[in-house]
Amino acid sequence: MKNESFLQKQLSKQGMRQVFTILFGLIVLLVAFSIINPLFLSSRNAANLSRQIAPIIMIGIAQSFVLMTGNIDLSIGSIVGMSTMMSATLMTKGMNPWTASLITMGASLLVGLINGYLVAGFRLPPFIATLGTMTICRGIAQIVNGNYNTGAINTIPETAEAVDTFRNIFYYGRIGGIYNTVYIALVMFLIFNFVLLKTKTGRHIYALGSNAEAARLSGVSIIKTTTVAYVVSAFCSCIVGIIQCCSAGMGAMDAGNSYEMYGVAASVMGGVSTLGGTGRLIGTLVGACVWATLQNGLQFANAPVALRNIIIGIIVIVAVLLDIIIRNKKPRLISAENQEEKSSPGDDNK
């Protein structure tokens, strides 16, 4: 009884229905993959899978923040690449990994700021603005080490130990059998979920995405709010970039390629609308799990790479399509009402 009322309460919250739908999908996937290959749920693969999910969660958070404001961030993948290459290059030059990461973070946040200002301050369409910064950041990723991938980051004797510790902290280490990367992702999830649901800034983000004009006329600063969303996005992307640097032990120029789209996939599967104003980060978290589980599970099921992509593409479309079909059953009524309201006779002679 108590359980049921808890479920009902959760379902009544805005956007939670989609979360439960995608959660159900995730469970189906986990069951299906473990039937196809019982090794899928082995503790070794579970640990591995969780470490694959972690960056997708962070990317998902990045994209969700921007999508919720009604915009999009195409530069996410390139910021990942840029921060991987920047931090790796600095480390191969003998810089302390923490200093290197801090500088990298600075550069990434700057990109976020620029994105926000271009979109909200200069009213550039977000698609165009971030397409530009996406290309620029990929260019920076290529230029920092003279258009080569970097060598190993732990070859300078003075910093080798610090680098190895750093790599352990961000990627290889475990606490209680679970990889540190997973903890990082969860902490970020908790922080940003809190920001969205419990702070002024979070409320401004939802309001802006729901109705920018109404938000503005309520005193919400469009420029500030949009910029915060892009900066959060850049922050998450940078962390993922640093994690990639740690995992590979070097910088690869094409790191993070098309991650922005993984972020969109995780977000929309979890119920975040690309039109803004709706969705929950918990949905994005589950969406990211679905995305990574598909990648990992299809690999375990021995599906060829090309086939994997096709299947994943289809599943993303079907997931969102199903949601639209379910939603349209009810709101057709509402939209008809909207229309009548809009054209109510008070509008006479307009």
């Binding site: 409320r203 309001a207 995405g209 109404a214 709706t278």
Partner: peptide
């Protein structure tokens, strides 16, 4: 009110709170 007054995705509580968040 629909175009400029309300954030239709948000609840009544959230709409009332919006200009008073400080």
């Amino acid at each position: 009110r629909k175009k400029r007054g309300l954030c239709l995705n948000l609840s009544v509580r959230e709409n009332i709170a919006l200009p008073n968040l400080d």
